[in-house]
Simulated assay, not measured.
Amino acid sequence: MRAAETTKSVRKPTNLSLDSALLKEAKSLGINVSRSAEAGIAEAVKRHKRQKWLKENAGALASSNAYVDANGLPLAQHRRF
């Protein structure tokens, strides 16, 4: 979301169906519903992309972990901690 915050993004009017009680409460609390919905959607997209990346790269991650388990970390002798 940071990139979207630092650049001017084009907003598109969108119709959403929301729980009416929740919407009423949000408005009574002064919550910007559009921005809150946008933040929630951005978080959902981030989580989805992370899960997709992990699934697509599971083999490479497992291979790398197996290598480290069998051989230790490359250049481990140079670590100071």
Rank of each mutant, 00 (worst) to 15 (best):
L16Q: 07
L75P: 03
L75R: 10
V33P: 01
A44G: 10
L54I: 06
W53Y: 15
G72F: 04
K24D: 07
G72R: 02
L23C: 02
Q77N: 15
L29F: 06
Q77V: 11
I41T: 10
K27M: 07
L16W: 14
R11E: 10
S17R: 11
L75A: 11
A76I: 12
A21I: 08
E25W: 05
K52A: 13
G59P: 06
V10I: 12
R79H: 10
H48W: 12
L75Y: 14
S20V: 02
N71K: 05
L75E: 11
D69P: 00
R11P: 01
K49R: 15
K12W: 04
L18Y: 00
A3Q: 07
K24N: 00
L18A: 07
N15I: 13
R2C: 00
H78Y: 13
G59S: 09
S64L: 15
L73R: 06
D19F: 01
I41H: 01
N15K: 08
S28Q: 06
A70D: 07
F81V: 05
N65D: 11
Q51I: 03
S36G: 09
L16N: 00
E5W: 02
L29E: 02
E25V: 02
R11K: 13
A37V: 10
S34N: 08
A37N: 08
M1Q: 07
K8T: 03
A58Q: 14
S20F: 02
L22I: 04
S17P: 03
E5C: 10
R2D: 07
Q77F: 12
R35Y: 01
N32R: 06
W53Q: 06
D69H: 03
H48P: 00
H48L: 15
A76V: 09
S9A: 14
A39L: 13
N15D: 00
R2H: 11
E5G: 03
L18T: 02
S36Q: 14
N65T: 09
Q51G: 08
H78F: 15
K49S: 14
V68H: 01
A76D: 11
L61Q: 13
S64N: 09
N57T: 08
E38N: 11
S9Q: 13
G72H: 05
D19I: 04
H78C: 09
L29W: 02
P74E: 07
A60D: 12
E5A: 01
K49E: 12
S64Y: 08
K52E: 12
K55W: 05
K27T: 11
L73T: 08
R47M: 13
E25G: 04
V68Y: 03
L23M: 00
L75F: 15
R79Y: 15
R47N: 12
A37H: 04
T6W: 00
E5S: 05
K24E: 11
G40N: 10
K46R: 15
T14Q: 01
R80E: 11
F81L: 13
G59Y: 00
L22H: 09
A26R: 01
N15G: 01
A3G: 07
K8C: 04
P74H: 05
S20E: 10
Q77D: 15
